[in-house]
Design a protein around this nucleic acid. Structure first.
Lengths: 244, 244
DNA sequence: CGGACCTTTGAAGACATTCAAGGCCTGTGG
DNA sequence: CCACAGGCCTTGAATGTCTTCAAAGGTCCG
């Protein structure tokens, strides 16, 4: 099992676990790394339901989840909330504020959560002098677009069961990336938040969980999930319905 | 009626209508503008159904629609296509390729279409020397995220009628930005493409059009649309259903 | 212990899909 | 130029999935 983090041999990089939470696979000289590291403000931990920023706030920074989890949602013209994403440790959020210089979404902690703040104008200046950083920042933004496209495809073309299964497997994958268990985990958000994200009702999500348990795809106990048949869930998602 | 384009006093900027199709509200010195303008490759016109790039192609450039229209779609693991966006003159596409250095979507012309190619590495280099360009590029990418979020909210929280009405009003707005009629226009895509984009079936979209015509919201003749009651459509979209 | 909120489950209903068929355009070949 | 084939679009009827409405159990926190 290779430890890819050994790239960061600088004592700076691992101090306070800053860099590795950004998952930045850059090969930087240590002085460059030092500059990047200096940008990152380590915030005080947030309590559940506490906001990182509100929709309409002036855009200043992007954020990385260090521990805990974040829910991002926007509010429609007619007052409807729409969850646009859940963010786990190592993931970045806040990009949407860049376009209009104001955050379009509100970001709140789903549990006790700590985040890193990365002031954008400083990141921008640093990017101007270190091209690899510039490139990487753009790549990170683009990644957000790709994940949004995946969600669009999920919402536009999949059933309730498929949507929930996708969410669970997405969580599983992302936890695995953090070297956490991909089969047993705790969902940090409520059924209501899941249903909103997936474009369903609370009842439908609840029924889907029950159904998955009956089918022995998983064991669910409140927010604790144990996936016992990941291939089965994958099959469920890929089934277009023209067979069976 | 102010003409905001008078910013571009340089003879370069208006040559071949390059800059104004990018809608870049930058105040650049003419030498900077010249450099930016030089990047832009004017492509030969595309015929309907012809691709700008395919999913999996190496990422080289972003593109701006000069005339005509573009459909962007990705193909799921299980082969399902999902339209992720339609692009009209003045709009940019191709950002999704940045993350993995390969385009995730395929972009095809919906009709005879001409696009500008903007090689990304050159744009990047230029951005490094001209901060305002750098900033603007990021803003453009972020705009893509915002519009994706709007689509997510549309798919997750709105009925078939609301989705189609939203699409029509979105077209109306975007055409107005190009100083074209916002009430009479031709939809460049098929019913099937609309239904895929909106997460519906062809039949549902067709019925929605018929319904809108019966309700005197619009007049539809094949792909020709005339919006006759835009406020009515707006009301339809904002109605959460708890009234009326 | 009580109350509010979240979750689950049931039953009825609504909306969108599926299945089916016919009409309308377009482009091609006779 | 006309005929025909194949899309694409529309419409109808039946089905199904998800929602809505309703109620009860569970959990958390004061």
């Amino acid at each position: 099992m290779k430890n890819t983090e050994t790239v960061y041999t600088s004592p700076i990089s691992c101090r306070e676990c800053r860099m590795n939470t950004l998952c930045i696979p850059l090969s930087l000289r240590s002085d460059e790394l030092y500059k990047l590291d200096q940008l990152i403000h380590r915030g005080t931990p947030l309590q559940a339901r506490q906001a990182v920023f509100y929709s309409g706030d002036k855009f200043t920074s992007i954020y990385a989840v260090r521990s805990g989890s974040i829910k991002q949602f926007c509010v429609d013209d007619d007052g409807r909330e729409q969850v646009t994403g859940f963010y786990l440790p190592g993931e970045l959020f806040g990009w949407d504020g860049l376009a209009e210089n104001h955050y379009q979404n509100t970001a709140v902690a789903l549990e006790t959560t700590s985040v890193c703040e990365i002031p954008f104008d400083q990141l921008e200046q640093l990017g101007a002098s270190i091209p690899s950083i510039q490139r990487h920042v753009m790549r990170l933004i683009s990644r957000e677009i790709s994940s949004d496209h995946k969600l669009i495809a999920l919402l536009a073309g999949h059933s309730a069961h498929q949507r929930l299964a996708s969410l669970l497997l997405s969580f599983s994958d992302r936890l695995a990336q953090q070297k956490l268990s991909s089969t047993r985990f705790r969902l940090p958000m409520s059924r209501g938040e899941i249903s909103n994200y997936l474009g369903l009702t609370v009842e439908t999500v609840s029924r889907a969980f029950s159904h998955f348990q009956r089918m022995n795809y998983l064991i669910v106990n409140k927010k604790e999930i144990e996936l016992v048949d990941i291939p089965g869930l994958e099959l469920l998602i890929s089934n277009t319905g023209d067979s069976e």
